[in-house]
């Protein structure tokens, strides 16, 4: 399997994927006229002998891909069974491993990480253990708004590549401004919204005082069938809104329920979305 980008980016180092740039691989790509200053090593002398014209042999260049996984590690991710955060980490690890195998440049970050050093940049299959060690250190509890998190990320990583944002998007300030910020970056953005089953089908009864785990906001409800129906409609509208928003802006959106195993998500759902091949 490999990670696929719908855009072809210029890598920094030689990798395993074909680049738009012509380079130094063994695979022949094209000829072009010699212009002064070209590397004489690439002149096709056989052609010169036959046609008495200088042509330059162009070879395909193979580059690496920058793969970023951005995990939301706010408190709200610490719900569900398995927790959404755990699910996000598994997903990031799976995608990261695919990238490592294809010699891509893999970097896994959390929304709250503001130090460059905190998240290692990984390359090569042997870096798997460093990646998992880093993921183990990711804990919930850093409540940073989506906008701030993405802004910080963008400031830290100006490069191009694939960004997989794994979050529940439950931000009272809304996800729109954060996503707009992302659009301005030259990134191939995949948004994976992770929701736990208790959010999709809340199993609650009675008179309840709902306390937000992040800002301790209180909402009083009396559970009734219409209320639950309306909640489900609100959730569906929210999900549809996010999908629509992403689609309009060339981002790919996927809803992931923690009930769906990560391997199935990667091998089936994301393959259909075109993130992996």
């Amino acid at each position: 399997m490999e990670l696929v980008s719908r855009k072809i980016f210029r890598g920094r180092m030689k990798g395993e994927r074909r680049s738009r740039r012509k380079g130094q691989s063994v695979e022949f790509a094209d000829f072009r006229n010699y212009v002064p200053g070209d590397d004489l090593r690439f002149i096709d002398w056989n052609l010169y002998a036959r046609l008495d014209k200088l042509f330059l042999k162009l070879f395909l260049e193979e580059e690496d891909l920058h793969f970023y996984a951005l995990i939301d590690n706010s408190d709200s991710m610490n719900f569900g069974d398995p927790t959404k955060l755990q699910y996000a980490k598994q997903l990031a690890a799976a995608l990261g491993f695919i990238g490592l195998c294809r010699a891509d440049r893999v970097r896994i970050e959390t929304l709250s990480s503001n130090k460059v050093s905190s998240a290692p940049t990984l390359r090569g299959r042997q870096s798997l253990w460093r990646m998992t060690d880093y993921l183990d250190t990711v804990e919930p509890g850093d409540n940073v708004s989506l906008f701030d998190g993405i802004k910080n990320f963008s400031l830290r990583n100006s490069g191009k590549g694939i960004l997989v944002l794994i979050s529940d998007l439950m931000d009272k300030e809304g996800y729109e401004s954060a996503f707009r910020y992302l659009v301005s970056q030259q990134l191939d953005v995949y948004v994976i919204q992770v929701l736990s089953d208790e959010e999709v089908h809340p199993n609650v009864t009675g008179d309840l005082r709902l306390v937000d785990c992040e800002d301790a906001d209180v909402t009083e409800i009396t559970v009734s069938k219409p209320l639950l129906n309306r909640y489900e409609r609100t959730l569906a509208a929210f999900v549809d809104g996010a999908k629509e928003f992403c689609l309009r802006r060339g981002m790919s959106y996927t809803l992931a329920n923690t009930d769906v195993p990560v391997d199935k998500l990667v091998s089936s759902y994301l393959r259909r979305r075109g993130l992996v091949r």
Binding site: M170, D171, D212, V218, T219, I221, L227
Partner: peptide
């Protein structure tokens, strides 16, 4: 007396009610 219950986010609930 309503029973307190911690939820990931009251965002959707608030919009619902």
């Amino acid at each position: 007396r309503r029973q307190p219950l911690e939820v990931p986010s009251t965002y959707l609930w608030r919009r619902t009610i």
